[in-house]
Design a protein around this nucleic acid. Structure first.
Length: 768
RNA sequence: GCGCGGUUAGCUCAGUUGGUAGAGCAACCCGUUUACACCGGGUAGGUCACAGGUUCGAGUCCUGUAUCGCGCACCA
């Protein structure tokens, strides 16, 4: 009778009225009669299709109230042994400026799966939640909002007022973000929540800076930096995106008397030239090496020395390089080797500082002006169109202008004595450097990568490590704990007590504090129990796009401050793309919002859709159809539970031995468990899920249950009871195996299996 | 330029130490008889990018080519 009916329940005067809509081909007939559920054994909840909406928040509340997200509570309540193996993950803190997107949803789904699995295995399991202040992005966002609403710049507001506005903005966004993480079902230990700018973390960052400064690894120096004129700040090499553009390569001479022609794509910088470099072996120019020329170039008096340097390629252009030390990274290094002057000719607003006709022009205008001048003076020899990679700032899109600036740097090559070390090949008390720490931390007994190719990428990056510029000219962030008074410098966690000191106005690169994240979240610089128990963390899980930014910096920082690696394993996931494999972008309008999708299909379906077909390090696809498919799976499971429940109600004697056939079925399930465990060990959770999914749907439901229908109407009592026992066993095991992936629906079924005295599914023992 | 990946069914992807090619979605056909139509049963669909090599045997290992993508560096 119940088949082919859509059941609508109406609660009326304490009775439940049920509307059955009987489907008969295309005709629908409505019947109306009352049906009392209260007296029956069967849980009325199973009469309707699974409804994630009414379930999920209720279940999450139950979990949270139980306290089991906190490993200390698990030990206290006897769920975990006090001496169990530790398993810890720090959540890569999502940016407070945004809402949860599919990328963070994937991250949460993967990590929660790993964490729930570990917890059920009886490990002391800690997953630390956090949010990130994302200094530059946040400040830019708030400034933009203020500019739009009030037509004011940050300078109109002042540092303190801007800070206040940012704080308000962040408070609002933080709760949205945290609620969305909860909606995902994330079993994060909220009692250990950390925010990158909270008091504890702030102090820790200050402490870290001071320690590195005292070790001589942080220094202030005038070097060439990547300056973003649009964002008015320095940026690191990693924040640069190269864009291909068409431009012209000009070949010319500085003056009629100058013996060598040079080529450039940026003629406007040539007023800052102090040398022409040629290769030492280049016979064409050897006679001129060492000569100096004074020239009036486009209204600027310049002095050009001809030098020989190995870095010049004979074959490129004319084989001679005009050296502009102040506005080119390579030229700056050449100037180092040859002790050249470094006049700055472009300022922070990308405008010319040169005298005469170029004075005050934008660089692009100056370029035209210089070319015009060259033509007028008959100095331009060649003009060819070339495609060039131009450096732009990732955040603002501004064209990066290399400039010399006084900034704070971390010296990655400088040697220091490491007091304590667990890093492979580095012993306590050894002389070492940050670069050596980075190179040695990865490999046997150190950090291992789930996807091998990222290890190669990492090593490549570590080998080419350069001085790291850590100061940023913005207002929101961890302020550099350095004070100046005339010629004196003071560096300390607390400001100097006497008057007359002014603090450095810059803040730290956001990756400086992020690098400390695995241990500042565990209480460092204090020697806490958490730090001892959970560090190094078991695994770091994040998108592969931040490998150099974050993973590498954490290894560097943890190595320096703790003498150990920050994590044992690196699991990097790919980008989430749309159903056709395109990048998700605003212009394509192909964004799929995880929270919207969860409203429609349930969070379990969203989580699983993200995990299926995702192998570590490879981009994955998400589409609404896929999510719908897994909603159906949740419902399938729901109905399996309903069937097992109704057909085992009268199970009386559970001492009966299993029939040979049922024994076989049980062994088969054990093989599935082994497979799933093997996949978990290699972090192939996509395959682990697929194994469970295939088993439940196509073996358990399609075959075993179908078979059972015959057995259960039969007359052989022993066979019947045996089968009932096996059905219950398979259902319970399935729920356990599935729980890390689909925590809500499995917990809900578990709670309705009349197992009131048992633990919640999230802390039952994982099948072995 | 240097380094690293991918190329397997119409689409998206698995394929763990070499041993008869797999899944999901889509397509097509059939199914109103009690867990589920948010379902079931079935059908069709592949020179595993190409060329060569190792091997009794290659999607899997080696060499080369094509092509798409990623990372790093940048040529002034």
């Amino acid at each position: 009778m119940l088949k082919n009916m859509i059941i609508l329940e109406l609660d009326y005067k304490g009775q439940i009225f049920v509307l059955y809509k009987i489907i008969h081909k295309r005709h629908a007939v409505l019947l109306f009669f009352s049906y009392s559920c209260y007296d029956t054994e069967m849980k009325e909840i199973f009469l309707s299709p699974y409804d994630p909406k009414s379930t999920e928040s209720r279940i999450y509340e139950l979990w949270e109230q139980s306290g089991f997200f906190n490993p200390d509570v698990c030990i206290e309540k006897g769920v975990t042994n006090a001496d169990a193996e530790a398993f810890s993950i720090v959540l890569p803190p999502p940016n407070v400026t945004g809402t949860l997107h599919m990328g963070s949803a994937l991250m949460l789904a993967i990590e929660d799966t790993l964490v729930r699995h570990a917890r059920m295995q009886g490990k002391k399991t800690l997953w630390i939640p956090g949010t990130d202040s994302a200094a530059i992005a946040t400040q830019a966002r708030v400034e933009k909002d203020i500019q739009k609403a009030e037509k004011k710049s940050r300078h109109d507001l002042g540092r303190e007022e801007l800070q206040k506005r940012i704080d308000i903005f962040i408070e609002q966004n933080k709760s949205t973000m945290i609620n969305q993480m909860r909606a995902m079902g994330s079993s994060l230990d909220w009692s250990r929540y950390a925010y990158t700018m909270d008091e504890k973390r702030y102090t820790a960052v200050m402490e870290a800076f001071v320690k590195m400064y005292e070790a001589g690894l942080i220094y202030r120096g005038n070097r060439i930096v990547n300056w973003d004129p649009k964002g008015q700040t320095t940026i690191s090499d990693d924040e640069i995106v190269h864009e291909e553009r068409k431009s012209f390569l000009y070949t010319f001479k500085y003056s009629k008397d100058f013996p060598i022609s040079i080529s450039t794509t940026r003629p406007e910088t040539k007023v800052g030239d102090t040398a022409v470099a040629v290769h030492p072996d280049d016979t064409r120019y050897q006679a001129f090496v060492g000569k100096e020329y004074s020239i009036n170039f486009c209204d600027s008096e310049i002095k050009i020395k001809i030098i020989a340097d190995e870095s010049v390629e004979k074959e490129f252009g004319t084989g001679a390089l005009g050296v502009t030390p102040a506005h080119s990274q390579i030229d700056w290094e050449i100037a180092d080797r040859h002790n050249l002057e470094r006049p700055q000719v472009i300022n922070e607003y990308a405008k010319m500082m040169a005298p005469g006709r170029l004075s005050g022009l934008k660089t692009t205008e100056a370029r035209d002006e210089v070319v015009k001048w060259l033509r007028e003076n008959d100095l331009l020899e060649k003009e060819e169109e070339v495609t060039q990679n131009i450096a732009t700032a990732e955040r603002t899109g501004g064209i990066v202008e290399p400039l010399p600036k006084l900034q704070w740097w971390i010296d990655v090559e400088k040697e220091f004595t490491i007091p304590h070390s667990n890093i492979p090949n580095i012993k306590s008390g050894d002389r070492t450097s940050l670069k050596k720490i980075m190179e040695n931390s990865v490999g046997e007994n150190g950090v291992s990568f789930v996807t091998e190719r990222f290890e190669k990428q990492y090593m490549h990056w570590a080998k080419n490590l350069r001085p790291w510029c850590i100061s940023r000219q913005i207002w929101f962030g961890h302020r550099i704990p350095v004070w100046y008074k005339e010629e004196e410098i003071y560096c300390g966690v607390n400001p100097p007590t006497e008057t007359g000191w002014t603090q450095d106005s810059d803040v730290l690169d956001t990756w400086f504090s992020s690098g400390l994240w695995t241990f500042t979240t565990l209480g460092w610089p204090e020697k806490t129990k958490d730090l001892e128990t959970y560090h190094p963390t078991t695994i770091i899980e994040s998108g592969y796009d931040i490998l150099p930014f974050w993973i590498a910096r954490m290894i560097l920082m943890s190595g320096f401050f703790l003498g150990e690696v920050p994590f044992k394993t690196v699991y990097l996931h790919g980008l989430v793309r749309d159903g056709q494999g395109r990048k998700i972008s605003k212009s394509l309008g192909n964004n799929i919002d995880p929270v919207d999708m969860a409203e429609k299909y349930g969070m379990d379906a969203v989580r699983v859709s993200l995990i299926v077909g995702m192998s570590p390090g490879t981009d994955s696809k998400i589409s609404e159809e896929k999510i719908r498919g897994y909603k159906n799976f949740a419902n399938k499971l729901w109905n399996i539970a309903r069937y097992v429940l109704t057909s085992t109600e009268n199970l009386t004697d559970d001492t009966v031995e299993l029939s040979p056939k049922d024994m076989e079925i049980k062994n088969e399930l054990d093989a599935v468990i082994t497979d799933v465990n093997r996949h978990f060990e290699t972090y192939r959770i996509d395959m682990a899920f697929d194994t469970v999914y295939q088993y439940i749907w196509h073996r358990f439901a399609d075959e075993i249950i179908e078979e059972s229908k015959v057995i259960l109407i039969g007359t052989d009592e022993a066979l019947k009871v045996s089968r009932q026992k096996v059905l219950i066993h398979i259902l319970e095991t399935s729920l356990k195996l599935l729980h890390p992936f689909m925590p809500f629906v499995t917990e809900e079924i578990w709670l309705n299996l009349n197992k009131k005295n048992d633990r919640m599914l999230m802390v039952t023992k994982w099948p072995q």
